[in-house]
Write a protein that binds this DNA or RNA. Structure first.
Length: 275
DNA sequence: CATCAACCTGATCA
DNA sequence: ATGATCAGGTTGA
């Protein structure tokens, strides 16, 4: 299967992958998984092939998706070469919601610190790494939550774990819903607004037509498309402009600064007028 | 419907 | 070294 591990696991969509010794180490369920890039795909150690292929959304045909993204927008078309092999992942629902609830108002580095802290404190020791805790594990140890330095996210994080543990919120119930219904349900959770809901819809529920707009994407939209304003306004613009696979386009745009920068350095392109 | 302060931590700036 | 400032989404006024 076609994949570039560096861009897929390092792009910020998942927070528990660590690059070490030329491979990527992460945790899926109760398994420590090691992935190594090869010429025609990757090698996987630590979990079943079915599991990793599902996680990697092996059914996504990158040629088709990238081509549609490129056709919808010339800037996206230019960016694709710089992240060829990037795949949107299919992450566990509970883990993804809980993680992105922590991601609110935090940068990538801090998100990783909070998530690892939660895993270390509540998850099972897998020998070096820890599993992402179940809702029940968090509820059982909630008195220790303060050591994880979640700030004002802490109480709502515990409340959400309680809601999942007692069955009043069922992440699996959002399976099969359309994009609009899925994000509406997610936004009914305290601490989850439109941006985080879009991230979860994209990275866990497979809504490739979700387009999360964070500060960085907002900047890109302003610089390259001259548009700014409310989340609603930007979202409607992006989803109609970039098409049904706009979640992929969002990833390309997210890294546009570094991609265009390296292309300019390589002499491949002129600097654009907005830079 | 738009604006805005408050929320918490860590990084960066004087 | 210490304090000020800022970045990062969501909520509710």
């Amino acid at each position: 299967m076609e994949v570039d591990l560096d861009s897929t696991l390092g792009c910020g969509q998942a927070h528990r992958w660590i690059r070490r010794d030329g491979s990527w180490e992460g945790v899926l369920g109760d398994s420590v998984v090691t992935l190594t890039q090869t010429a025609d795909g990757f090698e996987c150690e630590g979990c079943s092939e079915d599991r990793i292929l599902s996680y990697m959304r092996a059914d996504d045909d990158l040629d088709t998706i990238y081509w549609e993204c490129a056709e919808a927008d010339p800037l996206v078309a230019r960016l694709i070469d710089g992240c060829w092999g990037l795949r949107i992942l299919r992450q566990d629902h509970w883990e993804c919601i809980a993680t992105y609830m922590l991601a609110v108002n935090a940068n990538v580095k801090r998100i990783g610190a909070m998530v690892e802290s939660v895993c270390r404190e509540f998850g099972d020791d897998l020998g070096g790494r820890h599993s992402f805790p179940t809702p029940e594990q968090i509820v059982a140890g909630k008195d220790r939550i303060c050591v994880c330095k979640l700030g004002y996210r802490q109480d709502r994080f515990v409340r959400f774990a309680q809601a999942v543990a007692d069955g009043s919120f069922d992440p699996d119930a959002l399976e099969g819903m359309g994009y609009e219904g899925c994000v509406a349900e997610l936004q009914s959770i305290e601490g989850i607004g439109p941006k985080v809901a879009d991230c979860i819809a994209l990275f866990s529920y497979g809504h490739l037509d979700a387009f999360p707009i964070d500060a960085r994407i907002g900047h890109v939209l302003k610089e390259h498309y001259g548009i700014e304003g409310s989340y609603r306004r930007l979202s409607e613009f992006a989803r109609s402009r970039f098409g049904r696979y706009c979640g992929y386009s969002q990833e390309f745009l997210y890294h546009s600064e570094s991609i265009l920068g390296s292309q300019v350095q390589a002499g491949g392109l002129q600097p654009n007028s907005t830079s």
